[in-house]
Design a protein around this nucleic acid. Structure first.
Lengths: 129, 129
DNA sequence: CGGAATCCCAAAAGATACTG
DNA sequence: CAGTATCTTTTGGGATTCCG
């Protein structure tokens, strides 16, 4: 069976229950594109400027080429990064963030603020018990 | 070995690379508590009002009791829902959202708006090719 | 260098059965 | 009713090897 490279966004949303509203689907889509262990670090790394495959790999520490390749493809499909190939020898491929990726700034900021507050709340709440 | 019921929020963040900033960690915390297939539908279902275990199960369609139980526990640990037991026979247990759960509204709204726009963009972008 | 192919492992989720 | 216990399936991620 073919691997789905659409990152989920081409599919319909099978809504079996009324709890599955359009709002939830929007949220799910948003969460989906940020999902996984490496998407955020990858995005932040590329925000520093364009980088080559191997450089990204080193910057992230211990991501394997298979995973890095997959994550980059998904970011590409979501138009957050562009891939450029230069026919040198050895081959040179660079990745860089798009203007559209900046549309994430607002939502990422909200998530960050909420997340930091939430961690404080929960940690404090558990210490007091 | 004990099951970790802290939902990840008690742990440290092992930061091997400089791409793993505090901001990323805040975002990861936020994404984590919304994670999984059922958290959002569950939250929205309970927003309609308090409900009993079996009622929630029916409302969500096909969630199994094991998963529902686990998800409710995590929502409880994150202080989004409260569990109330009434010593009737047969037993009655209700779940309802907390005031604190409303702190999610802003971030959920941002996610929803961004997600809907993103889906439109990507779907349109693929049709034009 | 920039990957793809293959194999492997752990976590998440589901099916089914059972209990207080 | 409100769960728990056990088992199987699915998924995500990683290790290793190889190729143009």
């Amino acid at each position: 069976m073919e691997k789905d490279l659409t990152n989920g966004l081409g599919e319909d949303h099978p809504c079996a229950s009324n709890a599955c509203t359009e709002g939830v689907n929007g949220i799910r889509d948003a969460l989906y594109v940020l999902n996984g262990k490496w998407k955020l670090p990858l995005l932040f790394a590329l925000t520093q400027g364009p980088a080559r495959f191997k450089d990204i790999q080193r910057a992230l520490g211990d991501i394997t080429p298979k995973i890095l390749s997959k994550e980059l493809k998904e970011l590409e499909l979501n138009e957050f990064v562009v891939r450029s190939v230069f026919p040198t020898v050895p081959p040179t491929v660079t990745y860089e963030v798009t203007d559209y990726s900046r549309s994430l700034q607002q939502v990422l900021h909200e998530l960050k603020v909420w997340g930091i507050n939430h961690r404080q709340r929960i940690v404090a709440s558990r210490k007091s018990k």
